[in-house]
């Protein structure tokens, strides 16, 4: 009984202390928000952090006009194939990348502004049965795609107008790659997680597949979010959208695993479990930035964790107008974008 009485109090404190509401953006024309992101956008010599909202048939760019007020800059209409997600491109300006498809990604497009003829444009980057895609530094995109016979893992370079000629094919593992993460601290290293719970490491420059390391079957369908190398070890942040509760580590949503890439041996470093009262099924989707993770839980709440402490640090209950459906970190850290299915996006300061 004591635990039940304490839990709501603890969760209220988490929200009040660490997440402060900043502003709200409502796309009145949209009733089907599928993703939200931030992008640096430069116009008339002024560079601003803008919000990008996507619904199934269009993508809109919003710029800050005044405190708590956003103005729509432009809306790209996409046509018949629905938008599935926005693909963030690190360190880029005036470039938005999106994935379109039905059950899986069938097309990747760039949305951009062309100063040469003063117009907003879109261009096709890639088509296929695309299983995973990630925006890399230096305006590159890595993707895994499958044909009946084989898997292709490809890095494409992007120009201001679309796909560049230079690219690199990476040696594919036998199993399907479901997620990618660049390795911080090792230039040219890339990791991926596969459908049979392996972490694979590539050399982006040569295309070599350097190592395949098994994660273990305790937490199936692990997805890599972030990787960094320190003191000869490769640390990988994994999420477990479908993990089951275990006695030893509770209900883990995220894990930090240390791999020795030389021997392929690994050990768990930190577990981040669901907050009290959220046992059972895990979460719908989540995102990691630096040492912070955020996810929408099946209860309709948003949870934020400090991955180094292994603790839930904030909890945002479902809002008055409904459950949360999306959560994304801003390009600049310490800001969180929380989306609802009616197209409303709430900006929170996270401290």
């Amino acid at each position: 009984n004591e635990a039940e009485q304490l839990t709501p109090l603890l969760l209220d404190d988490l929200t009040d202390e660490n997440l402060q509401f900043v502003s709200k953006l409502k796309d009145s024309s949209s009733s089907c928000a599928v993703d939200v992101s931030t992008v640096w956008w430069e116009a008339a010599g002024r560079r601003e952090l803008c919000v990008v909202t996507a619904c199934e048939i269009s993508v809109s760019l919003w710029k800050p006009l005044a405190p708590d007020h956003w103005g729509r800059v432009y809306t790209w209409q996409l046509g018949e194939i629905p938008v599935i997600q926005i693909i963030p491109l690190p360190d880029t300006c005036n470039l938005i990348c999106i994935a379109l498809g039905n059950l899986e990604i069938g097309e990747i497009r760039l949305l951009l502004y062309s100063s040469a003829n003063d117009s907003f444009k879109q261009s096709l980057v890639k088509t296929g049965n695309i299983k995973a895609v990630l925006g890399l530094k230096d305006r590159r995109l890595v993707s895994s795609s499958r044909t009946m016979q084989e898997q292709q893992v490809e890095v494409v370079s992007l120009s201001e107008t679309g796909r560049s000629k230079d690219g690199q094919t990476l040696m594919p593992p036998e199993e399907t790659v479901l997620a990618f993460a660049e390795v911080e601290g090792v230039r040219d290293a890339l990791v991926g997680t596969t459908a049979v719970n392996s972490v694979v490491v590539w050399n982006l420059k040569t295309g070599q597949l350097l190592k395949k390391m098994h994660v273990g079957y305790s937490y199936p369908a692990s997805i890599c979010h972030r990787a960094y190398s320190d003191s000869g070890l490769l640390f990988v942040v994994l999420s477990h959208p479908h993990a089951k509760e275990s006695e030893s580590c509770g209900n883990p949503a995220f894990r930090v695993i240390a791999f020795n890439p030389k021997t392929a041996r690994s050990t768990g470093v930190m577990f981040s479990s669901l907050p009290p009262g959220h046992a059972g099924r895990q979460y719908l989707e989540g995102e990691v930035k630096d040492a912070s993770a955020a996810a929408v839980l099946t209860s309709g709440a948003i949870a934020v964790w400090d991955l180094l402490l292994g603790q839930c640090t904030a909890l945002l209950p479902p809002g008055p107008s409904g459950s949360w459906s999306l959560v994304r970190w801003c390009v600049t850290s310490a800001r969180l974008l929380a989306g609802q299915t009616d197209g409303s996006v709430y900006v929170y300061r996270y401290s």
């Binding site: 350097l210 190592k211 190398s229 070890l233 020795n260 021997t263 050990t267």
Partner: peptide, 23 residues
């Protein structure tokens, strides 16, 4: 975690694996 659990650690793991892996 200790080195004995994970085996011998190399600070240059990326370069070493790149020189060992097939091109």
């Amino acid at each position: 975690c200790s080195e004995s659990d994970l085996g011998p650690i190399s600070l240059n793991w990326f370069e070493e694996l790149s020189s060992e892996a097939p091109p």
